[in-house]
């Protein structure tokens, strides 16, 4: 640590830091402020009822419900599949292991734009557009690519001795996973869960393409259509925006270490 830093430099650093922090927070605080404004221009007061109105009139209650269904489904499926696959890649030897793993790694770099067009036409052909499945399955596939990579890294780095010991004790492969490894895999799994939750909750393009039925709109898609309506007032639009952002922000505030670790450390470690 630096020992001799002048008072002036210290003050300057704090000032710069404060400016950037304000810059980062301002748009979000401003939209929260707008959400509490009266819908009547010029009228004062704090209007918490804007949120209730956005929830019912703006139909954000329904949109958030859809997002919840989709996100929970994707999180559960992707986590289970990733743990199973990561366990196999991380602790077992079988033919084609390398090739299959690289094949899945490929999915880490494939953007939605590259698959959304055929996905739409294939889903349409089998009658799956405008269903939850059209939103859930492609996102499970994308998440599983990352999840398998993430869980494999965990299993192969921590489990060697444990797996061998469990085997010597006569545990079979399932017991080894379920009783020995999963309890210590909790932190890695939490990171995976919060990331997949955030990605799924915030996903926009897939929902835009797959869903035309209003009753299936996810929160970001609902916000998009709400903002298009000519009758939407700015405070209600802001209230809707806050509602859309809030679930992820709350999870972030409680589990931010996992967000930051997953998004940064996971990619730096090598």
């Amino acid at each position: 640590m630096a020992a001799k830093v002048s008072r002036g430099e210290r003050l300057g650093t704090y000032t710069v830091l404060a400016i950037f922090t304000a810059f980062a927070l301002y748009p979000m605080l401003a939209i929260f402020g707008t959400a509490l404004r009266s819908e009547v221009a010029g009228e004062g007061g704090v209007h918490w009822d804007n949120f209730a109105k956005a929830w019912t009139v703006g139909r954000f209650g329904s949109y958030l419900g859809n997002s919840l269904v989709v996100s929970v489904s994707v999180v559960v499926l992707a986590t289970v599949f990733s743990v199973l696959a990561g366990y196999a890649f991380g602790t077992m030897r079988f033919r084609g292991r390398e090739i299959l793993f690289y094949l899945m790694l490929l999915g880490l770099t494939v953007p939605t734009e590259a698959v959304v067009v055929p996905l739409y036409y294939n889903m349409r052909d089998v009658g799956l557009t405008d269903t939850y499945a059209a939103l859930i399955l492609p996102q499970v596939a994308q998440s599983v690519a990352f999840g398998t990579f993430w869980m494999r890294a965990f299993f192969s780095s921590t489990s060697r001795g444990l797996v061998e010991a469990a085997r010597l004790d006569g545990a079979n492969h399932w017991q080894t996973l379920w009783r020995v490894l999963l309890p210590i895999a909790r932190p890695a799994m939490v990171t995976l869960i919060v990331l997949v939750f955030m990605w799924t909750w915030n996903e926009f393009m897939l929902a835009l393409v797959m869903v035309t039925d209003e009753s299936l709109r996810t929160a970001p898609l609902g916000l998009r259509f709400f903002s298009d309506r000519a009758t939407t007032s700015v405070p209600l639009l802001a209230a809707g925006s806050v509602l859309v952002a809030l679930p992820v922000v709350l999870v972030y505030l409680f589990l931010q270490r996992h967000f930051i670790r997953g998004m940064l450390e996971g990619s730096v470690k090598g």
Binding site: A24, S241, F259
Partner: peptide, 13 residues
């Protein structure tokens, strides 16, 4: 924080 906010919300803000 900006990293975790849905882009559509960022856009509105």
């Amino acid at each position: 924080l900006p990293q975790v906010i849905a882009m559509v919300v960022v856009a509105v803000a």
